[in-house]
Design a protein around this nucleic acid. Structure first.
Length: 275
DNA sequence: GAAAAGATTAAA
DNA sequence: TTAATCTTTTCC
């Protein structure tokens, strides 16, 4: 199913607005049909919906759906205005959910993010402006890419006005277009969530290096952020891997994800429905 | 100038 | 559970 939507979009020219791949994706019958498995039960356990059905035979189980929710149809897909990014990272983070990241033929939909803010003991900006973190202190709407553990390229989207020092980490995405390129870069011939759930995986799938740091995302060309459907429900939780920070920042619920999607990194059991 | 630690991942 | 891997930042 997923492959059908993707190969369909690949067959279309992706350069002009009128024939962009998302329109065909969002109107494709498979994308418009929500899978039963993702329906909310309304019980107290919010995580129930995203877990696979246990007692169904493997061959009968529905495959992971690249569409995190029923997409809201939208006519034109375009880059967002730079003003979109000039807000508190805590406000920007959830608004990035559902949006599209595009680099040439590869298109990913953002499914999980984390906010990093001024006066945040977990934020890279906590040491002030350095050669690495300079983009974080620039105006919102630019990429901030850094090397983590000497291996992984982590993509952030700079938030707020110039001088603030805030950014949103992209933790997970769903593949929308360019699956073969994504798989090639990842070295994985799969379409399961393992392909793109984790910040290092997103950077690898987009073929990023630190040279992309400070690249504007609101102008056509290179790496772009495009408008996308707003998720129906959102999950929140504490951020991952920041045990070195102050308790108030370790515990802050600044991690956001689209409810019901399988495209969320570990740990998932710390996420709860937003109010 | 040296050393520790890190917004992680994949394999055992 | 742990090794891989290297830049950034801090400490002496």
């Amino acid at each position: 199913m997923q492959l059908r939507a993707m190969s369909l979009s690949r067959s279309l020219p992706a350069t002009t607005e009128s024939s962009n791949p998302f329109v065909s994706f969002c109107y494709s019958p498979t994308a418009m049909t929500p899978t039963k498995r993702f329906k909310r039960t309304g019980s107290r356990n919010s995580l129930q919906p995203s877990e696979p059905v246990r007692k169904t035979r493997r061959s009968l189980r529905p495959k992971p759906n690249p569409s995190p929710q029923s997409p809201i149809p939208f006519g034109k897909t375009k880059t967002l205005h730079r003003d979109f990014f000039l807000i508190d990272a805590l406000d920007l983070a959830p608004r990035l959910l559902g949006k599209f990241l595009r680099r040439e033929d590869v298109v990913l939909q953002i499914t999980e993010v984390e906010a990093y803010r001024p006066n945040d003991s977990a934020c890279h900006g906590r040491f002030g402006v350095t050669s690495r973190t300079a983009p974080v202190f620039g105006p919102g709407g630019h990429a901030y890419v850094y090397l983590c553990y000497g291996l992984h390229m982590m993509l952030n989207i700079v938030a707020d006005k110039e001088g603030a020092g805030a950014a949103v980490l992209i933790r997970s995405c769903a593949p929308i277009s360019g699956l073969d390129v994504i798989q090639q870069r990842r070295g994985l011939k799969t379409e399961k969530p393992i392909l793109l759930t984790g910040p290092g995986k997103v950077g690898q799938a987009l073929g990023l290096s630190t040279e992309w740091s400070n690249h504007p995302l609101y102008t056509p060309g290179g790496l772009e952020l495009l408008d996308g459907p707003e998720p129906e429900n959102i999950l929140v939780g504490p951020r991952v891997g920041i045990q070195y920070a102050l308790p108030e920042h370790v515990n802050a619920l600044w991690r956001f994800a689209i409810a019901g999607t399988p495209w969320i990194s570990a740990p998932k059991n710390t996420l709860r429905p937003a109010l």
